[in-house]
């Protein structure tokens, strides 16, 4: 039993990172109906910006760990938001009224471009975050050991997501985002500045993705230029499982995917665990064709 609980905890930690990234996919998709394939690279960028401040500039030594992490969070979310905004301006805005698949290919191109920019700037080698940044406290319950930091990762993700949920559901701007997601034309007629909504979505989504990158860097201690590929694909899958375009869906999808993976790994086979997760994805979509929490956008045929 304790073994099972342990797996659940692992699943939730892995899943909360997926969920954080999935939010970026889902918000952009909700408003623009665009799969932002470059989102995984914004996640990588977040990890590297964090690396720059925490390791290269050694803010941890300069400001002390707590303040350093706080400041780094600000810098990371700021710079990934800026990158996301630029991405939207350059690669997606000109294609807003074109065929949707044109934007998909543009996104794929942007993803290749960004990944290689990161490689040229920071090099191809793996980079290490210092292992001493976070305290390594181990919690022993019933003979099983749980690193406390997992709880920290999970809580951070939940906190961010709760904040986003409140923002979307209880502010005017959140209302505008929801309106634009349902029907851009109608929202425009009702006085919603859709351009602004898109800009906001392209700031929040990448900022969350960047934060996830920082979290992965700090927790796992190792980053490299193509780490966004795998995480991006997993997070996108999570967003679809939950019902793409739906914010609580991204959270549910992320956590569920994390659990599926860990349980598949623990009780079936490590070599097949991704296949298990994808089979589950297909089954979910066969029986609920628009994800677990249904996509809350108008049916578009």
């Amino acid at each position: 039993m304790a073994h099972f609980v342990e797996q659940i905890i692992y699943g939730l930690t892995v899943g909360s990172v997926y969920a954080l990234i999935a939010l970026g996919y889902t918000m952009v998709y909700g408003v623009m109906k665009l799969i932002n394939f470059a989102h995984g690279e914004l996640f990588t960028l977040g990890a590297f910006v964090g690396f720059f401040f925490l390791v290269t500039l050694d803010w941890g030594g300069v400001f002390g760990p707590a303040l350093a992490i706080g400041l780094t969070i600000v810098m990371v979310s700021g710079s990934t938001a800026l990158a996301g905004h630029l991405l939207e301006r350059v690669a997606y805005r000109p294609l807003r009224h074109s065929d949707r698949l044109a934007a998909v290919v543009s996104a794929l191109g942007a993803s290749i471009f960004l990944q290689n920019v990161i490689m040229v700037v920071w090099g191809a080698q793996y980079r290490a975050y210092s292992a001493s940044l976070l305290p390594q406290v181990i919690w022993r319950v019933a003979g099983q050991s749980f690193p406390l930091i997992r709880l920290f990762v999970f809580l951070t993700a939940i906190l961010v997501m709760a904040g986003l949920y409140l923002f979307i559901n209880h502010t005017r701007l959140g209302l505008a985002i929801r309106a634009a997601a349902i029907d851009q034309g109608a929202a425009k007629l009702m006085g919603v500045d859709v351009r602004k909504v898109i800009a906001v979505v392209f700031i929040i989504g990448p900022a969350l993705g960047g934060l996830a990158g920082l979290l992965v860097g700090v927790y796992y201690g190792q980053i490299n230029f193509n780490m966004g590929q795998l995480y991006g694909l997993k997070a996108f899958t999570a967003a679809v499982i939950g019902g793409i375009g739906n914010i609580p869906g991204a959270m549910v999808g992320g956590l569920l995917l994390g659990l599926l993976e860990t349980l598949g790994d623990a009780y079936v086979s490590g070599a097949w665990k991704d296949a298990i997760a994808f089979v589950a994805l297909i089954l979910i979509l066969v029986f609920r064709p628009t994800g677990i929490l249904r996509e809350r956008v108008a049916e578009k045929l």
Binding site: P94, A102, G109, F113
Partner: peptide, 17 residues
Amino acid sequence: LLAYGAALVAMMIFRPQ
């Protein structure tokens, strides 16, 4: 690949169809 990615984006922007 950096150049290749940029070329993809540029081509889609100029010829979205």
